[in-house]
Design a binder for these strands. Structure first.
Lengths: 136, 136
DNA sequence: CCGTATCCAAATCGATACTG
DNA sequence: CAGTATCGATTTGGATACGG
């Protein structure tokens, strides 16, 4: 029962976020939500509690496995909760915790910035890629 | 890529309506600075222009290669500039562009949150890892 | 001083198949 | 419905060593 995953190559266990005695907390935050799907899961759950398949349908392109991994990781870090309802067809609901309430706004600010800066970034990339001596 | 994420807070959408293509710009932002070192480079450059070796010394644990990679990436996306001064010992200076000025505050908010939430996150992790029936 | 080139290890992601 | 198990492909990061 209380099997710790000591293991070798279990790829379903949440990625243990590095302990890192580092003094800069920003990379740590980015590690929490920096995965390919975590941010989208958080955004979707920001709309309200969701069930597994709801999330699966809402987030286009995500696989069952990656959804599970992301959810476990977020749960482990206390950013979301997982509630199992003892129904005859299994029903599991995920919801955000109060912990993330405080970053909703900064995250939205980042999102707004992304929309605004997108053209400039694209332009910068083209300029960089197009210039002859960028690199080889 | 990616415009149009309407309806962030709509919980009333019936299941019958179209699933809304979720082209969320948040993951895009995180991709820009989500590397292992990019954020730290940005933070350090936030203190003012820096030379290559200054950055190398300031960011503990980074290798020459990763510093170069991060800098090139940030430069390509227009977030920093690279200026070569034709001196006898080569001198290259990196600096932030006005593009990132607008995310400085959200980023700092995230950093503040990280400091505040750190204990809760650690506790959540211990609770998760310690509980026998978490999974498996 | 400011990088590049190479090679290798590790983490991450995706597709598929199976289960209570 | 809500997951796990496995495997392989891709991406990323680190350790040198070399070069203008």
């Amino acid at each position: 029962m209380s099997q710790r995953n000591t293991a070798v190559t279990n790829q379903l266990t949440p990625a243990t976020t590095a302990p890192a005695p580092d003094d800069c907390p920003l990379p740590e935050v980015l590690n929490l939500i920096g995965g390919k799907w975590s941010a989208q899961v958080l955004v979707e759950l920001g709309n309200g509690p969701r069930r597994f398949t709801q999330l699966e349908r809402a987030i286009t392109g995500i696989s069952r496995r990656m959804l599970t991994v992301s959810l476990r990781d977020l749960e482990r870090n206390g950013l979301i909760t997982r509630t199992v309802h003892p129904d005859s067809p299994p029903r599991v609901e995920y919801a955000t915790t109060p912990l993330i309430e405080d970053i909703r706004e900064p995250l939205e600010a980042l999102t707004d910035w992304a929309r605004l800066a997108a053209p400039a970034i694209t332009a910068a990339r083209r300029a960089y890629d197009g210039s002859a001596d960028s690199h080889l």
